[in-house]
Structure formats: C-alpha cells, structure tokens
Amino acid sequence: MTAEGVRSTGRVPGRLGGVARVVENHWEWYRRNWRATAVSTIVQPLLFLLAFGVGFGALVRGSGQAAAATGGADYLAWLAPGLLAMSAVQTGAFDSTYPVLSGFKWQRTYSAMTAGPITPGQVALGHLGWLAVKMAGAGLVFVAVIALLGGATGAGILVSVPIAVLTGVAVAAPITAYSATLETEGASFPAIFRFVVIPMTLFSGTFFPVDRLPELVRPLVWVSPLWHGTELARPVALGGPWPAWPAVVGHVVFLAALLAAGTALAVRTFTRRLAR
C-alpha cells in the first residue's frame, strides 16, 4: 500500500483526556491484578485497626489516662481516622517507589504510553490520579469495616476519606518525582520506608496524641504530612473538637503546597526521563 493510501486512525487526546487514558490504563491493569496489592492496601490497615483499635482499645477502655488522651472519645473511634490517613500515606509511598521505577525500567509501561500521543506529564498526573482513585476505594472499604466494628460516631468519617486521599497523594507526589530520577533502586527505597515512612506513621499522632512526645522532637512532627492530615481528619470524623481556624488553614495549605510542588516536580522529572 502507498503512503497516501493509509489514513491513521490515531487522535491526540485533550490535556485532561490524556491523563484520563493513563488512569484508565492503570485501572485495567488493576482489575486483573488487584490481588497483588490487596493485602498491603486493604488487609494490612484492617489488621492494624483490629490490633490497636479493638485489642489495644479493650486494654485501655475505661482508663482515665486514655480518655484524657482522646478527649473522651472511645479509642477505636479516635484511632480510626488516623489509621485511614496512615494507610493512604503507606499506599501512596509504596506505589510511588517500585511500581514507578518499574514503569520506566522493568515493565517500561511509561515508554509504551509516551510512544503514542500521551505526554510524559500526563503519565505522571495519571499515576497520581490513579493513586487517588485507589486510595478513595480502599478508604471506603476501610470506613465500612470501621462502621461494622462500631468505630464510626457519625457520617463525618466519610468526609475524612477525601482528607486521607489528599494526604496520601501529597506524600506520593514528591516520592514519585524522586523515583523518576533513579536508575536503580539500590538503597533508596528501603531508606525511604525505614527512615521516612515508618517514623512518619509512628510519630504523627495516629496512635497517640503528639503532646505525649518529648518537647524536643515535636518540631519534627510539624513537617509530617500525616500529622497535618490526621489533625484534619480526626475532628471531621469525631465531630470535634475543632482546632482554631488558623490551624485548619495551616494544615490545608501545607498539604496543598506539598501536593502542588511534588506534582510539578514529578511532571518535570517524568518529562526529563521520557523525552530525552
């Protein structure tokens, strides 16, 4: 056939359309391989909920010290929004390390996407968009289980799902940007998990109020996105007590700024790597 005789059926999708295609691509993959991450995304947070919310909760039920820490709330109900945000952060951090490097290096799905009309920036945004969808889904499952266990005090817990998603994506974005700069995982990913993610999950007020930590380390808590997310998600879920409004604004601004900066960086590093 001659060149004039062939008419390509390919079209350039719109700016958001390209992102949507990438999300769709992730969803198609996930539909077939959801089992691969079901344990870490859904089962593991539920086990933490059972162990700490129910088990540890039973240990401290009726204790004055515990009531003082939770502001009178039942420990399970107090813990639930924190764990919701924590599991979103864990999903965001994990899915932005090995899977991202794999997209560039092992499975090369990213170069397959950008071989067509999709831009590298759309691949980065699509990755983060997909993570948001996934976290929201996992969060709703989580909320359903909390309700079954009697840990939901009202419909507010549903509103803490988008807050958890915001927190998770805000953590995911800079890690995604960083992963895109790596040639090999080396020591980087284990270091991120053990020196950033694990301390963040332990010291951000998820399991106990941060005022129980020594004065000295408290400034470290302020830079933890999970702490900001938890400070928002918890009063929303419990219906109070509300922090002062400048604090609320501060938490939101911190998370939004981290998300914006991380996303911009991710778009840049994806472009640099895929369009070179």
Binding site: S63, Q65, A66, A69, F207, F208, P209, R212, L213
Partner: peptide, 9 residues
C-alpha cells in the same frame, strides 16, 4: 509505642 501508647496505659 513505649512512650506514646504507654502514656495511655
């Protein structure tokens, strides 16, 4: 956990 959770227990 020792410090933080311990303060509840």
């Amino acid at each position: 956990m020792g410090q933080g959770l311990g303060s509840l227990v």
